[in-house]
Design a protein around this nucleic acid. Structure first.
Length: 271
DNA sequence: CTTTACGCCTGACGGC
DNA sequence: TGCCGTCAGGCGTAAA
């Protein structure tokens, strides 16, 4: 599933292909993804020049002269740059054609991705305005987490995945960060100490950095869709490792459910 | 306000 | 082999 590293890798991959190019055509092959695809995209997008490709949390912001296209990849969505007559596959939902034969293609089997057109400041859009800190922001520290966790009884993993607190961390990297920090994912957030939360913030940033580095190597040539974005190159220590021996202590990795999501941890390394 | 449950959608997987 | 039920999963939204 695309989390921050995958989305940022995608952003870096498509940015040089799109910026300063003009939209020439729009093809929509799905009436509805997460929400109805704006029916009039093909009306106002052609002719507009892309000015920037930004990211906020897991949202991509394709900025144009007269507005901004917010794009979320959901669980199974990914973007590619295609050139020339590449026939559309079953799950190819949207094509944005740009000048010089550059085509941005959204593929999504499960149709959980979303496309929203917005004018005005996209960061003030209701979908983005309530987001918390970026994990790589300097203010994302143990002190910040301590403030957000104060008096809260919910599991620290649920807090870490709450985009109102910190944005872009999904199930995979929340699990990995907590393992590295040696914190049990079900620990009530308000029970954690500053040193623990400082460690958690550091480890979250660290795991995202490593995943980003791995994604970057996987997707260097973004126009050549060699593989799906991601975490295939990144080594997961707990996520999806139920029953396998922990790398540190050999105790089998356990699975529980928190906030409706599968949660993986080592009961001895994460007391 | 906080926390939980639901729904969207389809591929993968287990059971028969 | 084939059919069917179940589940995963981000996240906005409704409900408790």
């Amino acid at each position: 599933m695309p989390e921050l590293p995958e989305v940022e890798t995608t952003r870096r991959g498509i940015e040089p292909w799109l910026v300063n190019r003009q939209v020439t055509a729009v093809t929509v092959r799905a009436d509805k993804l997460r929400w109805p695809v704006p029916a009039d995209l093909a009306q106002y997008l052609p002719g507009q020049r892309c000015t920037a490709v930004d990211r906020r949390g897991k949202y991509l912001l394709l900025r144009f002269e007269n507005g901004c296209l917010l794009l979320h990849l959901g669980m199974s969505g990914f973007l590619r740059i295609v050139q020339g007559p590449v026939p559309a596959g079953r799950h190819d939902r949207v094509d944005l054609d740009f000048s010089e034969g550059v085509r941005l293609r959204l593929t999504d089997s499960r149709k959980f991705s979303s496309l929203i057109w917005t004018t005005g400041d996209p960061l003030q859009h209701p979908l983005l305005s309530d987001h918390g800190l970026e994990p790589f922001a300097g203010e994302f520290t143990g002190t910040y987490l301590l403030e957000k966790a104060r008096g809260r009884t919910l599991a620290i993993k649920v807090l870490l995945m709450d985009h109102h607190v910190v944005t872009g961390i999904g199930n995979i990297y929340a699990n990995e960060a907590l393992f590295r920090a040696g914190i049990h994912p079900a620990t009530p957030a308000g029970n954690l100490t500053l040193p623990q939360l400082t460690c958690l913030a550091d480890q979250a940033r660290q795991v995202l950095t490593e995943a980003l580095a791995a994604g970057g190597t996987t997707l260097q040539d973004f126009s050549n869709p060699a593989g799906q974005p991601g975490h295939f190159a990144f080594h997961l220590k707990v996520y999806g490792q139920s029953g396998k021996p922990c790398e540190q202590c050999s105790h089998p990795i356990e699975t529980i459910r928190l906030g409706g999501r599968s949660t993986f941890f080592c009961p001895t390394c994460q007391p």
